[in-house]
Design a protein around this nucleic acid. Structure first.
Length: 220
DNA sequence: GCGACAG
DNA sequence: ATCTTGTCGC
């Protein structure tokens, strides 16, 4: 298995190839969600990618893959654990997405190479990082209203890593960052467009559901 | 006692 | 649906 040091080297190398500006089909018609679910009692994991109609949010296609985790959970090396089942699931899809919203960060990462970057680069598909909790960076003065944003800043370098995005008024924000081939502004727009009356985007909710069902079916 | 750590 | 508390490691 790849060592931690090797994995970090891979991240530093590949991060050079991340594209941070818009290079995706417009308008976006098919938007995907990607998520991985874990079994509490074993190292079985299930990845799911679900394709939604960007306008109606109807599920157009979905694929899952259950396997044994080949890499431990280490903050910052998340993608080495979650990528394998997601790549397998992606190959099973019948349609191709215009963009994938990932359940994890993009460049809001210590080496600017979170799961969304890794998946986007590997598949050469536009991706957005959308985490539920912060990995690095700080923000303040985030207004309460739905749609409000605050820059997520690296405390040491001052780099803008992404945005804290309020998807519902008065509810804790999500953390949006560039994955690959999508600008930060577009990323935030896409995520917000997938949130109706709930905190999480429909892409993430559907992917989570499919992954959980696949894992459940594989174990029982 | 204190705390930074995606899932 | 969302948040948080207790817990563990340092």
């Amino acid at each position: 298995m790849m060592s931690e040091a090797e994995a970090m080297g891979v991240q530093r190398e590949l991060s050079q190839r991340v594209i941070q500006h818009d290079d995706l089909p417009r308008p976006v018609r098919i938007i995907a969600g990607a998520d991985v679910e874990y079994d509490k009692h074993s190292d079985r994991i299930a990845g799911a990618i679900v394709l939604l109609d960007a306008d109606t949010k109807a599920v157009l296609d979905a694929a899952t893959h259950v396997m044994t985790a080949s890499f431990p959970y280490i903050p910052g090396l998340f993608s080495f654990r979650e990528m394998p089942p997601l790549l397998e699931a992606y190959q099973k899809l019948r349609l191709r997405p215009d963009v994938i919203v990932c359940d994890g960060h993009g460049v809001a990462h210590p080496r600017r190479f979170g799961l969304a970057c890794h998946l986007g680069l590997e598949l050469n598909v536009p991706t957005v990082g959308c985490g539920k909790t912060r990995l690095i960076g700080r923000y303040d003065d985030l207004a309460l209203e739905r749609g409000a944003t605050a820059a997520l800043l690296d405390e040491m370098t001052g780099d803008r890593l992404g945005l804290a995005l309020r998807t519902q008024t008065g509810i804790n924000p999500l953390f949006v960052s560039v994955g690959h081939r999508v600008s930060l502004g577009t990323a935030a727009q896409l995520v917000l467009s997938m949130c109706d009356a709930v905190r999480l985007p429909e892409t993430t909710r559907q992917a989570d559901k499919y992954a959980r069902e696949a894992l459940e079916a594989a174990i029982h």
